[in-house]
């Protein structure tokens, strides 16, 4: 067992972890934060995306043992006091969520994108979420939500509908 001190969504935890436990399983099983999902478990799908020290990572490919002194943010930290964040509210308005399995990771990747690029073009949005697979809503509504939350609803013309 390895002892780690880690901050998750602003709250400090001290926990013993097995070396083989991933950050994903640590969040879900040890802390009960089940908003973060496992899809592929191998870096492909992005369902497990969380922030670690200010940047997004695939939590299925991080060991919990690496967490000493680190700070993690998950989807549970996104809404504040029961009020959806701006990104979540835009997803809601645009029906950018169907089953919701990809949404936790998708919302956090969008947060990372908007931090570095507050007004991304459609191409830049596609690139920002390329590591996040959505297998049911499709991407149009998600891109519309990102255009909306970045104040660019008028740029929808760049989207090609099929």
């Amino acid at each position: 067992m390895i002892t780690v001190n880690v901050t998750v969504n602003g709250k400090k935890y001290k926990r013993d972890v097995e070396p083989s436990k991933t950050l994903l399983r640590f969040l879900r099983e040890d802390l009960g934060l089940t908003g973060t999902k496992e899809g592929c478990g191998a870096g492909e799908c992005g369902a497990c995306t969380v922030f670690m020290d200010g940047h997004t990572v695939n939590s299925c490919m991080v060991l919990a043992a690496e967490l000493e002194g680190r700070s993690v943010e998950t989807i549970e930290g996104e809404a504040k006091e029961g009020v959806l964040s701006d990104i979540q509210a835009a997803f809601d308005r645009h029906h950018a969520i169907q089953c919701g399995y990809c949404s936790a990771g998708m919302v956090l990747s969008v947060r990372e994108l908007l931090k570095r690029n507050p007004k991304p073009s459609v191409e830049q949005i596609k690139e920002g979420i390329e590591g996040n697979f959505c297998r049911c809503t499709g991407y149009q509504q998600i891109i519309e939500a990102v255009l909306d939350v970045s104040g660019q609803e008028g740029s929808k013309g760049e989207l090609h509908y099929v």
């Binding site: 870096g43 992005g46 995306t49 940047h55 997004t56 990572v57 695939n58 490919m61 991080v62 990747s109 990372e112 994108l113 690139e127 920002g128 390329e130 590591g131 996040n132």
Partner: peptide, 9 residues
């Protein structure tokens, strides 16, 4: 190379 969050690691 890979996706944005993979490139972060």
């Amino acid at each position: 190379l890979a996706s944005y969050q993979v490139r972060n690691r």
